[in-house]
Nucleic acid binder design. Sequence first.
DNA 1: AAAAGTAGTGTGTTCGAGCACATTTTTATA
DNA 2: TATAAAAATGTGCTCGAACACACTACTTTT
Lengths: 334, 334
Amino acid sequence: MAGVSKGTVDRVLHNRGKVSPAALEKINEVLNVIDYEPNLIARNLKSTKVYRICVLLPDPVFDPYWLPCVNGIQDAITEFKAYNVVIEIHYFNPESTKSFLKTNETIISQSPDAVLLTPLFHKETIEIINQYDELGIMVNTFNNQVESSSIKSFVGQDLYKSGRVAASLMNLILPKGQIAIIHIDESLKNAVHMQEKERGFRSYFEEKNLSNFSLTTLKVKYSNIETKLPAFINENPDLSGIFITTSKAYQIASTLSNVTDKKIALIGYDLIDKNVSFLNQGLVHFLIHQNQKRQAYLGVSTLADHFIFRKDIPETILLPIDIINVENASFYVS
Amino acid sequence: MAGVSKGTVDRVLHNRGKVSPAALEKINEVLNVIDYEPNLIARNLKSTKVYRICVLLPDPVFDPYWLPCVNGIQDAITEFKAYNVVIEIHYFNPESTKSFLKTNETIISQSPDAVLLTPLFHKETIEIINQYDELGIMVNTFNNQVESSSIKSFVGQDLYKSGRVAASLMNLILPKGQIAIIHIDESLKNAVHMQEKERGFRSYFEEKNLSNFSLTTLKVKYSNIETKLPAFINENPDLSGIFITTSKAYQIASTLSNVTDKKIALIGYDLIDKNVSFLNQGLVHFLIHQNQKRQAYLGVSTLADHFIFRKDIPETILLPIDIINVENASFYVS
DNA sequence: AAAAGTAGTGTGTTCGAGCACATTTTTATA
DNA sequence: TATAAAAATGTGCTCGAACACACTACTTTT
């Protein structure tokens, strides 16, 4: 259309220089008129470059919470297979920093173009992120946030806000009484995670000046629950609600049903099978859905889109805080 | 790898016949070994066929409810542009069956490969669907369901269940009292839509034997509200909750705040600006998000995926029934 | 004046699949 | 055995972009 060969057009498109002013002007004019946009698909057809994205994920064997993530990543794998993007999942034991570090070494030996990781262990994460940075490997995170200038992107939820959502629901269920905030975890790797939720939860009650409530924090481990929880209930006869900051609401629900007939409102996180089962039984009132599947999917898909289509990677993606009760749960379980 | 030319392989892949048993076996063996899957991108590169998808949408000028759909479709447009898929939006006046029919004629004159429509008018929809069927044009629907064997797919929500979700929330807010189910609409085009929600809402209270509640149905038009609603409130001093089955909760909220100081629980639909504003003011307690944007997006994207990647079109896609209160609303507003 | 350099431009190949057409091999028939 | 018909197989081009390389027409250097 501009009366020149595709080679000259190519030089204009990619600023490779060596184009006469006359040709440049003519070509730009035509580009404007036809509103030229490159066909992103054809572009990737030629390139022989294979992009490798490694995902560092806690093994769902240790905690079913991570199971949906695998599906999310599987979706991404099939979606991007045709584009020369290889996505690999590497599992580690979420209770072992050693396992975390070892799996990272495996990943580094694969020399990927980018890594998506769940930064469970703060100190170790910072270390390995620096390693990745030096090797020029891009790092995305999801699930929980870690501050580091070397991290390209984070996908997750606003945990403070999700605590507030839980509080607003608790306030709806209960007119008054004592509420326990229970953190359940073997280690304290999720400490910040859980504290943010607690902070949000408390802020709601403080802000609204709801003085007819009293909030107590309780930290237990799985092995502790059966002894600690009954004792706590005996000591606090006024207890009417429990907010569980992790996905382990089912552990509380199951113990609770053996200990007392009292109706205690339970609000927890995540649609894992056991939680949904207690939700359907009416022992858990609300669950907050953290949508791990989508978190994981978005974590890798933004990377793939960046490599293939040169799309920008958003610094932060905050997923909606889904409120789940027995009536709408079925639509969220994938 | 099989010692034959790509032409022969091509004949095997597409069952074009004229292949010797020996070659066929060898080729199939190789295909199995390398786990061959065609590169869907390269396939579409060659094809000069341009797929045309028309979307029949109520003009957002008449009802802002439809505005997010435009964004959803815009997303699909940019996503599928590179694949020779042309997606066009055609607007009609949701208050005029004539406009609906006329816009359909325009669409037919474009002879598209598929149509996505919002079947607001039942009788007229059936008519034009038959027309599309005769012309071999595929029809998808979203927003509300219409029974017809010629419809390929429906994207929407389970309205009965969404009524139940609303009821479960109302039951949480209120201990007892009278609840009004209000249908607001100029015409009765949404009749089935609204009745399903009412049926679900009532079923919840009936099922749970909640005899301390009484439910009343009220049909009003926008022009009626300012006279009918105050009268209704005077006649029913026990009124403590209102369930609005359309996206017009803001109209009730706004009238209500002028009429009475009594705290009446409001539950409605859709995150349109005015509703969210009343949600933030505390006058609306819950909104149910129907996610029209995603409905519209999925409506066209399943079609595009079908044409380009030969993916199956699911008969029904039911989106989750999102529960929105003031604490999590901001994450859903796009 | 010949050689070398340089700015500007054009050509050819590749990616993976689809498809029309050409070519070779085998089989059937005169 | 020659020859036509049928069966089997191979070749070449295209889609849109990327890029290496070849080429022309001047200008500068030796």
